[in-house]
Structure formats: C-alpha cells, structure tokens
Write a protein that binds this DNA or RNA. Structure first.
Lengths: 229, 229
DNA sequence: CGCTGTGTTGACAGGTCTCAATATAAGTGG
DNA sequence: CCACTTATATTGAGACCTGTCAACACAGCG
C-alpha cells in the first residue's frame, strides 16, 4: 500500500506498527463521541463521516472522509472523543494507538511528519467549510462540498472527470452544510435547473467544474511539496 | 518562558531554534492569504485573528488567537496561505520556519509532538465552531464563542472569573460566527436583556457560566494528559 | 409484501439580512 | 485641548432566505 509520499521501506514500517486491518459495514460506528479513545485510524477503503451530536438532536457532520484520511485525530488531545466516526459504506481501516503514534515521533520522524501533514490538509478542508457555511448561500455551500470531494478524488483518479459518486444521503449533505434536508433537496433541484449539476441517488455529475468553482467562492487549494528535509 | 508542557531544557532549545521575537501593532498584517508562506508563528503575547476573504467581499474569521496558539499552521501544506493573520492588539510572536519545524521532527521529537498537540487543540475549537455556526442559533453561537475564549483564558488565569476582556469589534465577532454585525448587535442586546451577559466596548461579563454553557449546546472540552511516555 | 429510510413538493412561519439613519467612541491634526 | 474625521455601535422597517410542518412518492430490504 502506498501511504502519503513515503517510500516503500517507510510504508512497511508503518504497516508493521499498525494493528490488523479492521472492517466495518454500512452504518457501523467505528468510534462514538463522548467515549474515551486511545487510537486514531487511517482510512484504507470506503467512506466515513465524522459527526457531532448536539443536545437538541441536531447533528453536524464535521468531515466526509475518503481513503487516505486520518480519522479521530482530535482524540489525541481530548479526554473524551468529540466526534462519532460512522461507516457510510463498507470500510477498511488501520488502527494506530496513540502510543504507537507517539512512538513514531521518537523513532520514525518522517512517518510522524507525514501523519502531521495529512492531518493538516484535513484542517484546511475544515477551514474552507467553515467559510462556506458561515459566509455563503446554501447553493454555494453544496457546490463547495462537491468540488472539495471531487478534487480529493481527482488526486488519485485524475481520469474520473465530472462524475462524482457520493454514497451519502441528502440528509448527510444537509448535516454537513448546516441546512435542513428539505432545503438541501431544493438546492439540488435549483442547481440541476441551472444545468450546473446532475443528480441521482448516490451520485452527482459536475457539468462545468470551472463555472462551479467560480460560483462556490472558494479557491482551489494547491498542496505544497511535502517533507522539506 | 513556559511553552506547553515542555521542561526547561526543551524550552531553551525551542527559543534557540526560533527567530527573534517579532512585534506588531494593532491592525498590522502578520501574514496575508494568497501569498507564499515559509514559516509558522507561536503567539507569545496579544490577540490575533486568522481570516479568509471571499471574492464577494465577505470575510470569515477562522480563529481568534490567544497567547500560546500556533499561527499559520495551514501554510505547512499549502502552496499559498489560506488565512490572513491580523494583529488585533499589540502582538509578540516567535517565528518558526517550516525548515526548523521539520528539523524538530528529526531532532527534538518531544518538541515536534508538543507542537502537533497544540495544533490539534486548535482543531477541536474549529470543529466546535463549525458545529455552532452550522447547527445553532445566532445567540447560541455567540455564547459558544465567548465560553471558548473564557475557557482558554481560564487555563492560565483561573482567577479571572466571569470578566472577559475581548479586544475585538462586533464586526469581528459577526465575521467569526457567520452573521451580520447588525444582527450581532441585536444578539448581544438580547443576551443582555436575559441577564446572561453584560457588554461594554472591549469586553463581556458572563453572569452565569453554567447556564450559558447549557444554552450554548456545546460541551466543555477537557484536554487529555499530554505526551504519553 | 409491508416496512422503513429516503426523496420530493407545497404552504407558511420565522430568523436573519438589507437598507437607511443616527448615536457614540476613538483617532488625528491643528 | 478642541475640531474634525473615521470607526464602531445602535435602532427601525421591510425583504428574503431558510426552516417548519405536513403530505406523499419512491426505493431498498427483511
């Protein structure tokens, strides 16, 4: 398995340090907020959401994770986990205990740095979504999220074009973007009417990525080269 | 200077690695989004905002930083900085180049880990604010932010009680919480009328922290012990 | 085949925004 | 120290976006 931009020997070390692969099915809870956590996860396959539940029953989806993402990083500094990790599809993860994570810091500094940088990329996505939710209309919010996921997939599957398979419900999208599922449905209809996207259960089609990106008001993020030695 | 939970020798190493202290005045821009960045900053004194500007002129304040915070971390993975760092008061920072940051990974692993954990704490605050902005009313949003800042100050000044000196404008608060300054003003008035807070230019008074916390819908975050091992 | 989750649509209510005006405080230059 | 300018705060009226409530259609699944 290729992990970030590490060389083969480092990947081997990494896999050696990880616990066995864990498998989950759709709707399985990988970890629940409010409970103690002693490990993080590297998502190897499938889709996972991380979400927060509020006392009034509202749910905020914090991130929609794809393979390569690190899960549960906030647990490294919290007594009780802040996020619930839910498998959206069949899922495969590597579990990495906090102990191992910090042993990387002592013994495999490039590995530790690679994990830090991956986590930092996820923070950028969080910043962008905060800006989208805080300062843009519902239609722009959806556009931002679709583009973000599209861009992340494109990093590993550049030929994927404008088809965007998204195994999440409209309720999930609404919970990620701070609106009601009813309004989410109307926004999809509106963007469809403007011929900017197509939608069908489980996926979108982005009809004009450039136009969508301008509309979204958020920039395309270019990652810097990694691991300045 | 005490840095995180490092011992004295580590702090000395750290200060040795840093460039000289930099000073800024109110409204000075420490770093601007869209430009290249080759360093992060440790905020040693004063208040700093990190913000994103959207093409339509809207501004999202991503974080309001207090001493001890790391600034510009997203720049470690980006070709162009995503956030503008603005001094809200007179400010003192330590500049740490990305090169030095990664040399910590190779040579001072505990230092690298400490920086990672501090950054992770700031991510938790971001997650909480996303939940607040996405899923709670404007009055609850303001309450969450005030409590977050209150709690962070209380870590170093436990005797501070309910007085909250906040050298930011209502415009800033509105930009941090995804609303208009006009509505921000109304929310303050509303919470004041409910006798939950007092307000005067430059500061709040939290009249009943417990009641405010329940009202905010967000939990109080307890940090885990650091640096396992 | 019924059940449950998901998607879709309509009418209406409500929170927040926009526009406009004024008040107050802070900053600047004489 | 005062007069002027600018930034910040405050208030009102109306519009608009999004939420709420209700009903129904459709799909997947046991």
């Amino acid at each position: 398995m290729q992990i970030f931009n590490l060389d083969e020997a480092e990947c081997t070390r990494f896999e050696h340090a990880c616990g066995p692969r864990l498998l989950f099915g759709r709707h399985d809870i990988i970890h629940e907020e409010g409970k103690q956590s002693d490990s993080i996860y590297l998502l190897a396959g499938g889709w996972v959401t991380s979400s927060m539940l509020l006392p009034d029953g509202e749910r905020q989806i914090v991130s929609i994770h794809l393979p390569g993402d690190l899960l549960g990083m906030s647990g490294t500094v919290l007594a009780l986990a802040a996020e619930t990790l839910t498998a959206v599809t069949a899922v495969e993860v590597f579990r990495i205990s906090h102990i191992d994570l910090f042993s990387f810091y002592r013994e495999h500094s490039r590995l530790a740095a690679a994990l830090f940088l991956q986590d930092q990329k996820q923070s950028v996505a969080l910043i962008d979504r905060l800006a989208a939710v805080g300062r843009t209309s519902s239609a722009r919010r959806l556009t931002s999220l679709l583009l973000n996921i599209h861009d992340r997939i494109a990093l590993t599957q550049p030929d994927n074009g404008a088809i965007l398979e998204l195994p999440v419900t409209q309720v999930d999208l609404a919970d990620a973007l701070g609106m009601t599922p009813i309004h989410m449905n109307r926004v999809i209809k509106e963007l469809k009417a403007a011929n900017l996207i197509d939608y069908s259960r489980g996926g979108f089609r982005l009809n004009d990525v450039q136009k969508l990106r301008t509309f979204s008001l958020l920039p395309n993020r270019n990652w810097a080269e990694h691991l300045p030695t």
